[in-house]
């Protein structure tokens, strides 16, 4: 089933925005759609052209030791690693804008097979873990996060493992500030995966949702706009899906050609909210506004 949601704050009061609180309320309303894991992709204030990296410190304990080794590695690489901190399963640090991210990520992930760079962005930070939205809040305090927009996901695993890496949102692994959440089944996943693997793309999971992020990253790299990329997804991805995507400046959704997965959206002067159950929008955002169901093959993109 899975719960997916997104929220864009259209007010300009981002320093004191309620982004984290709103996403948590929406996520909580969709907890019953996905008891296996919960996660959010948060787009915060700009880091002055620097990149924030979130690194998973492993699924099997030993996070403290790995954090120390990671910090040592960053120093030895001269990568900066400013504001290095750890919370539960994650290390978070900031690197300068000119850093060669491809080499840095390769160095981090090859130093220990348990390490995985979960997100990279000037604005993006992904936090996800096994368990409920309440657990996510207890561990990471996501309600305190201020920012412009974000995505959320509650997962009911149907085909792949239940662990942090297989949880959503997915970062595109390679393109900073691109995150997706997805509900559905990509039936040509294995075919697409083989095609990308032949081109050297690394897959971190066996979750078909991962290919959505890789696909969109690839389309955007060809110079296509977000809207064009989402329309292309309707042509190239088979199956039933509702997906949300966000970058540092854009936020959008696509609904499959069979209209098999629910997706609803609402827009007011103050916000855009999207979720696969209206209850998630209503419970987080009181007021008098209309919630619409996305149409078959509908694509929408908003600019921040």
């Amino acid at each position: 089933m899975c719960g997916i949601l997104g929220f864009l704050d259209k007010t300009k009061n981002h320093e004191h925005s309620s982004l984290g609180r709103t996403l948590l309320k929406m996520l909580t309303a969709l907890a019953c759609r996905g008891p296996d894991s919960a996660g959010v992709a948060l787009f915060g204030p700009s880091t002055n052209d620097r990149f924030v990296l979130k690194v998973k410190l492993g699924n099997h304990g030993g996070a403290g030791l790995r954090a120390e080794r990671l910090l040592g590695l960053l120093k030895s690489l001269g990568a900066g690693g400013h504001e290095f901190s750890t919370v539960a399963a994650y290390a978070r640090f900031v690197v300068d804008g000119g850093t060669d991210l491809t080499n840095l990520i390769a160095a981090i992930e090859s130093s220990d097979k348990e390490l995985e760079v979960v997100s990279v962005g000037r604005n993006l930070e992904i936090v996800k873990q096994v368990g409920s939205p309440a657990n996510l809040e207890r561990t990471y305090g996501i309600s305190q996060f201020c920012g412009t927009h974000g995505l959320g996901h509650t997962r009911l695993s149907t085909e792949s493992r239940v662990d942090l890496s297989h949880s959503q949102p997915f970062w595109s692994h390679g393109r900073p500030d691109l995150a997706i959440v997805h509900n559905g089944h990509i039936t040509n996943y294995h075919k697409l995966r083989r095609l990308y693997q032949q081109r050297g793309v690394r897959f971190y999971t066996e979750n078909d949702s991962e290919v959505v992020a890789i696909y969109l990253s690839d389309e955007l790299s060809k110079g296509r706009s977000m809207k064009e990329s989402l329309h292309a997804m309707l042509r190239d991805l088979d199956g039933s899906f509702s997906s949300l995507v966000a970058t540092s400046t854009q936020f959008g959704f696509v609904k499959d050609p069979f209209a098999l997965k629910p997706l609803l959206w609402a827009e007011t002067d103050g916000f855009v909210a999207v979720a696969n159950e209206e209850i998630a929008i209503r419970s987080a955002l009181p007021g008098d506004y209309q919630v619409r169901e996305a149409e078959v093959k509908e694509v929408r993109v908003w600019e921040r």
């Binding site: 629910p262 609803l264 159950e277 209206e278 209850i279 209309q290 919630v291 619409r292 169901e293």
Partner: peptide, 25 residues
């Protein structure tokens, strides 16, 4: 008075259901 989600009035036998807004799948 508002809109309705999926499966509005599904398998209804008799009666009337009026939605002022839109209805889902």
């Amino acid at each position: 008075a508002g809109s309705a989600g999926w499966g509005l009035a599904e398998s209804m036998m008799n009666g009337q259901v009026v939605v002022r807004g839109s209805a889902g799948n």
